[in-house]
């Protein structure tokens, strides 16, 4: 049996999150996905393009034929709505 050296304790801990945490995360993500599904279709579209496919505003504007400011407004509204709905969901 060896004593821990200085600093070894930190290195011994596992890097993965606790099992409970992973489950929580999955639930949160599922909840968020549900909320995204309930967005109006045009907002949902733009949210997916931005956050799932990683396109910029300009690219989204080109893809959806909306103006850049329209895209910005839709994303802003969607993000704000998702935030409030998510907060409202959690106890």
């Amino acid at each position: 049996m060896k004593r821990f050296e200085d600093g070894q304790m930190e290195r011994v801990t596992a890097a993965e999150p606790l099992p409970g945490r992973a489950l929580e995360q999955a639930e949160t993500q599922a909840a968020i996905l549900q909320l995204i599904e309930c967005l109006p279709p045009n907002q949902q579209e733009v949210v997916r393009l931005k956050f799932q496919n990683g396109f910029s505003y300009k690219e989204i504007s080109r893809i959806t034929a909306l103006s850049v400011s329209n895209v910005g407004f839709l994303i802003h509204t969607a993000v704000a709505r998702l935030r409030t709905e998510f907060a409202a969901q959690r106890p």
Partner: peptide, 14 residues
């Protein structure tokens, strides 16, 4: 907003 964005990215990626 940034935090929400990150959550959305994570959720959509999963």
């Amino acid at each position: 907003i940034r935090r929400t964005g990150q959550q959305l990215e994570a959720a959509l990626a999963a």
